[in-house]
Amino acid sequence: MTFKLIINGKTLKGETTTEAVDAATAEKVFKQYFNDNGIDGEWTYDDATKTFTITE
């Protein structure tokens, strides 16, 4: 399955996707992406659209 990440950061904005077997696996991938890029904020997940959103 394809999961999308929408980034609404102070310095970084955009979208990316990842292929994962489930939302929990995608969450781990995206959290690592947050850490690697110094993004910290509030994030949500919409199961209907398989979209994670992080807002700094």
Rank of each mutant, 00 (worst) to 15 (best):
M1I: 14
M1P: 09
M1H: 12
T2L: 12
T2M: 11
T2Y: 08
T2D: 04
F3D: 01
F3P: 01
F3Q: 01
K4R: 13
K4S: 05
L5C: 14
L5W: 03
L5E: 01
L5S: 01
I6L: 05
I6G: 00
I6R: 05
I7D: 01
I7A: 02
N8M: 13
G9A: 08
G9V: 15
G9T: 15
G9D: 02
K10Q: 10
K10W: 12
K10N: 10
K10V: 14
T11P: 04
T11K: 09
T11Q: 08
L12S: 09
L12C: 15
K13G: 07
K13H: 09
K13M: 10
K13W: 12
K13L: 08
G14E: 11
E15A: 07
E15D: 05
E15N: 05
E15K: 06
E15M: 09
T16I: 15
T16D: 04
T17A: 07
T17E: 07
T17V: 07
T18M: 12
T18S: 03
T18I: 15
T18N: 03
E19I: 14
E19W: 15
E19H: 13
A20C: 07
A20S: 06
V21G: 06
V21Q: 10
V21A: 12
V21L: 11
D22G: 02
A23Y: 13
A23G: 03
A24F: 09
A24G: 06
T25F: 07
T25S: 12
T25H: 14
A26Q: 00
A26P: 00
A26F: 02
A26R: 01
E27V: 05
E27I: 10
E27D: 03
E27P: 01
E27L: 15
K28F: 09
V29P: 00
V29N: 07
V29G: 03
F30D: 00
F30W: 04
F30P: 00
K31S: 05
K31F: 06
K31T: 05
K31A: 05
K31Q: 08
Q32Y: 06
Y33Q: 07
Y33M: 13
Y33L: 12
Y33I: 09
F34L: 15
F34Y: 13
F34G: 15
D36N: 11
D36G: 11
D36K: 10
N37D: 05
G38W: 13
G38D: 09
G38N: 11
G38Q: 11
G38F: 14
I39D: 04
I39N: 04
I39P: 04
I39R: 04
D40F: 14
D40W: 14
D40N: 13
G41L: 07
G41M: 11
E42K: 08
E42V: 14
W43L: 14
T44C: 08
T44W: 07
T44G: 05
Y45N: 00
D46V: 03
D46W: 02
D47S: 12
A48R: 10
A48G: 07
T49R: 05
T49P: 00
K50W: 05
K50Q: 08
K50A: 05
K50F: 10
K50H: 12
T51L: 02
T51K: 02
T51I: 04
T51A: 03
T53R: 05
I54Y: 14
I54C: 06
I54N: 01
T55N: 08
T55E: 06
T55H: 07
E56Q: 11
E56G: 05
E56L: 15
